[in-house]
Design a protein around this nucleic acid. Structure first.
Lengths: 137, 137
DNA sequence: TTCCTTGCAAATACTTTGCAGACTG
DNA sequence: CAGTCTGCAAAGTATTTGCAAGGAA
């Protein structure tokens, strides 16, 4: 079942703007904020409103096609494609803002410890590093 | 050097509102958002403006007296006293919003791994869990 | 033809800024 | 007294909502 089918299976429709949003996200090397995504779309001469970008991102997130991130000190949200990507985290440069994937996650064991200690049932976790990238050091 | 001295040593002053903000933060069992802090102050009949709460929190953060947190999916910032508290993280209930401290941090070793892998110099990290607290399960 | 989707305008939420008067040391 | 701090008004940024027209299946 491809993206198109997944959208239609949920009763939603594959529209011109939806396709464009997905396309930009697929091509991006890093998670995009709604505003950045909007700027990319404009650059590619796609006629779309910022509000539509927001609404499409909400929809795609609900369908589980994209993942939403909130990086520290940014005051905005970012999205990245989920398609086949394994669970991962990010590191962000405090100087230039560059965001790089971290393909590791040390928290599986920790979750059990936390559940025992707090009696919470753990759902998600978010982990993010920040520092200075090679160029900015 | 107590809080009072620390503030004065930086050329800042210990004012009525600053004292009130610190007092509420000291008594809170969990990190407070500016708005929650403001509500507490009002409840204690402290005459203060929300803007002043924001400004004092910025100042106290710059002085290292409070720590700022941004929990996932909250869309607001929180602050907690730093005074002698060890480095820690939080878990938040997705249902009632309750926030509980986690007194562990498994990330010291990981930092070295990440620095080698990404060539970043790691500054900070943020780690947060969310799930369902005992009452909400 | 149904009803999901879009654009535009407007509202909301959180946070920051400008300025003149008030207060601390 | 000098310089910091405060309240009030207003601006700024990110995001959401209402509504009527447009578009997908």
């Amino acid at each position: 079942m491809d993206v198109n089918d997944e959208i239609r299976a949920s009763g939603k429709r594959m529209t011109r703007t939806r396709r464009a949003v997905l396309s930009v996200l697929e091509q991006s090397q890093y998670p995009l904020s709604p505003t950045e995504l909007y700027a990319q779309l404009k650059k590619h001469k796609v006629a779309i409103d910022l509000v539509t970008v927001y609404r499409n991102l909400v929809t795609l997130k609900e369908l589980g096609l994209v993942t939403q991130l909130e990086l520290h000190q940014e005051g905005q949200v970012r999205y990245e494609m989920r398609e086949g990507r394994q669970h991962h985290h990010h590191i962000r440069c405090k100087s230039c803002g560059r965001i790089v994937d971290l393909l590791l996650c040390p928290l599986k064991k920790l979750t059990a410890v936390i559940e025992k200690e707090t009696r919470f049932v753990v759902g998600d976790h978010s982990l993010e590093f920040s520092g200075w990238c090679p160029r900015c050091q």
